[in-house]
Design a protein around this nucleic acid. Structure first.
Lengths: 206, 206, 206, 206
DNA sequence: AATGAATGAGCTTTCATTCAT
DNA sequence: AATGAATGAAAGCTCATTCAT
């Protein structure tokens, strides 16, 4: 049923090997500055071999992004079972931050190219971020209807949260910059989004 | 008394003319893909003329960024007189969003190159964003001490707000994407940050 | 046993093919005025191919010179077995003139660039000419000690001979200019150096 | 009678000012690498001004060389009154070496360009060196006929002396390289040419 | 299937020369 | 007469891609 012939397996392996090498080089130098020569060397493969598996240098990038999108979507499927809002939000954010953390190099590249390529940006926003967006949106809608959340402009609220998320990724681009562990970050962010800055009446200042 | 000679004026004009053309081409294609030939054509100038005013293509970019940073810093000087927190935050954000809006092409370019160039990113974060960051931080610290704001992790809160800000810029990259007017956006964001998502006791749901 | 693979042989051949083409173009136009486009055309190769074998146009020149220096040094090893002074000197000069003659194009280029590039001139004087210089110096010293040669300023004498040698190369730069065969030239020069202009007492005027 | 108007004088002065600046820059960088911008700066003149006095950068060089040739020819007119051969030769060489010494920068440039430009080389050999050559040739011929000099191949002997002369110029190219004063050099060379290396019978070894 | 030598379009940059002021 | 801003041709070099082996 699976039916992967040995050849196909080998091809898969070779393809992954090249893709990983490309990711490393892209991350280090950026898409434009990376050369196929370097990628080939990093993959321990001849330059021509790349073109047996990918039509062009650009396809190398697109293939990487596509793979990442798939992984991201898979994550979206397993939406957290809604316990408390705090837990829900925390888990949602934590999972994303973890995914990002584990694919930081790739994310670097994607972010860079997203800025340039309209199609790529559209793809990323719609295919990857929209799932997060809609999950946040659903939460907001439900809770507003239940009278638990204030009646805010949902679009703005979602974008603020998404943006905050994106911003943290941007700020985390530097390897050196101190970054919090995903769980901690997610928890604090969830609290911030839910409760805002202002002290609530009847709440302890500290 | 300031004594700008005609020549100096002309040089200034030419320089600006080239810089603006470069910004347009960079915005459209990105720094790397933009060619000096295109920039020259866009500026209605010979290719060589560019090099009478800028040492290299790279300097063209750096000059653009430096100008923007100056403008941004000037903005930072005129910090809003603190009336209510809401007004303070709204004004702070509105001014930034307006500046960004008016320099969208440039911001596009800067964001792109920031991803690639460590120095550029450092420069942008430290020179441009850190002012916003410290102003937000000051507000938080003061209000927390006064017992008006909750005792949050200030770093996370500031980064969340900054990130949200950055995120909105990213989301606004597309010309087509519907974007709210800066004042509206700033006001709603300020409210969101201050009050969070949850309904406050004694508050009307709607 | 030496084990030159086919690939290595081919690379060697290509390298030589490009080098020879470059020598021809350099000789005709000079290093500066020669273009990589021309060299490529002369070598029946694409322009990019040059850069698969040499890092830069400059390296093309340096490689040529280095090869010539090697050949020249090999010649220096086989110093003539000292029979009579006349024979010694004649052979010494003849071998050099022959080497020069066979590499006239290259010598043209080297002489030209030597004038401009201090490093190159130093290299040529020290690596190539100093061997000739020291061999002449040794001869002088020995013979002066034996009382066969007059007690001249050895430095001046050597430089006069070396200079004369260089001068003949310069004078021979033109293809059209009538040039004597190396043996003849060497023999007459040796005689001139040994005996000077003046008739010796007891010598026949003719 | 001379009738130099003030304007002509000024033009002459300006022309010389540019020429001298050009000589300095050419000497330092070589003809090719020297830029008109540099020359203009060195002459305290605008770039365009150069072209009011010289048709092209090349003409700047040719004009310099022509001036030098004139000076050289003037020298040739005042041939030394023939006392002894030694004195004659010494004076001849000394005058040339002095001229060269005083125009070393220019000579550097001429030598460089001579290598590249056939016309220039022809011009230099025929117009400048041929006078020296013919004067040496005349001496040889006369003395051979008188039976004072050996019956050598005059062409070779002259070329050897000329070449030696050229060689000393080449060797003197480096500013750092130790160079003898012209009188000393001329005297020793004259002795070398006249008497050769070999001790003459009845001569003291020392 | 893997190779890597060969390709050549296209890049940034330089600089002698022109010409309106 | 003097200027120097503007020009644009042409240079060296890079690198994604092809294809014969």
């Amino acid at each position: 049923m699976t039916g992967k012939s040995k050849k196909e397996e080998l091809a898969q392996k070779r393809s992954a090997q090249i893709l990983e090498a490309a990711a490393r080089v892209f991350a280090l130098k950026g898409y434009h500055a990376a050369t196929t020569k370097e990628i080939a060397a990093e993959a321990n493969v001849a330059e021509g071999t790349i073109y047996n598996y990918f039509r062009s240098k650009r396809e190398l990038l697109l293939s990487m992004i596509s793979d990442f999108a798939d992984e991201s979507l898979q994550l979206a499927m397993t939406r957290p079972s809604s316990k408390s809002d705090k837990e829900f939000l925390t888990t949602l954010l934590k999972d994303r931050f973890t995914l990002i953390d584990q694919n930081m190099n790739l994310v670097r590249v994607i972010l860079r190219e997203m800025m340039l390529d309209d199609n790529l940006r559209y793809f990323f926003f719609e295919q990857v971020l929209s799932k997060l967006s809609s999950q946040l949106g659903d939460l907001l809608k439900t809770r507003m209807e239940e009278g638990v959340f204030r009646n805010l402009d949902a679009v703005i609220a979602v974008h603020a949260m998404m943006g905050s998320f994106l911003g943290f990724i941007l700020l985390g681009l530097d390897r050196k910059r101190h970054r919090l562990p995903p769980e901690e970050l997610a928890s604090q962010l969830a609290d911030f989004f839910l409760n805002g800055l202002r002290l609530r009446s009847g709440e302890e200042p500290t």
